[in-house]
């Protein structure tokens, strides 16, 4: 019974169908299946399959993003019971993600978020034009491992430095990844960020390296 259900869950991720994935999560819960098992055996294989297919060019961004959305919707259903029973999903790390204050460019940052999620990170995407104070409040609240800062303009890029300086001042141990078109290796060294990448695929590699996952 549950094997069949898990297969349907995997399929709902492959189809990127959040309505079906939510439906199945509820069904599994009422059948008394353990939440963690549902995620690991039901949804994760789908996420992994789409991620792998994307990496070798056989799947495309819409599939990847919709798979992420279907997964997120299912996890939202399962989370309360997981919390209640004191269980935690195995994740590679927690990432807070945002485009810095004064900058409203979203797409690149959202892609990084999607890719990180489908690679096993827990991602808190705060959106665009996020003030430094709000960013750091979230980092402290969720005890984030990584803070991802996007900036598309040379004028807003400077905010990345401001955030890093503030982290140092407060003595937070979160690592900082930066990204965005104007960001260069030289800039990264100057502001003493922990990592950067030109694109979303590279960002996942850097994030894994930072948290010590292979």
């Amino acid at each position: 019974m549950s094997a069949e259900l898990f297969r349907e869950m995997t399929q709902s991720i492959l189809d990127g169908d959040d309505e079906v994935s939510v439906e199945l999560a509820k069904k599994a819960l009422s059948a008394g299946i353990d939440s963690l098992t549902i995620i690991t055996d039901g949804y994760m294989p789908g996420v992994k399959e789409v991620g792998d297919a994307f990496a070798c060019g056989d799947a495309f961004l819409p599939e990847l993003v919709m798979a992420g959305e279907a997964m997120k919707a299912a996890v939202a259903v399962l989370e309360p019971t997981m919390k209640a029973s004191g269980q935690a999903r195995k994740i590679l790390g927690k990432v807070v993600l945002a485009t810095v204050e004064g900058d409203i460019h979203e797409i690149g940052k959202s892609l990084v978020g999607t890719m990180l999620t489908s690679s096993g990170f827990e991602v808190y995407d705060l959106g665009v034009d996020v003030p430094t104070a709000d960013l750091l409040a979230k980092v402290e609240e969720v005890d984030a491992d990584i803070l991802g800062l996007s900036a598309l303009l040379t004028t807003t890029m400077i905010k990345q430095k401001e955030v890093i300086d503030e982290i140092a001042k407060r003595g937070l141990k979160v690592m900082v990844m930066v990204g965005g078109a104007p960001v260069t290796e030289e800039w990264v060294q100057r502001i003493e960020a922990d990592g950067y990448s030109e694109d979303a695929v590279g960002a996942v590699e850097i994030a894994k390296k930072l948290v010590g996952a292979k």
């Binding site: 990127g16 919709m66 959202s110």
Partner: peptide, 9 residues
């Protein structure tokens, strides 16, 4: 958020 739309896919 058009990437998330079924139509896009």
């Amino acid at each position: 958020d058009f990437l998330k739309q079924r139509t896009t896919r």
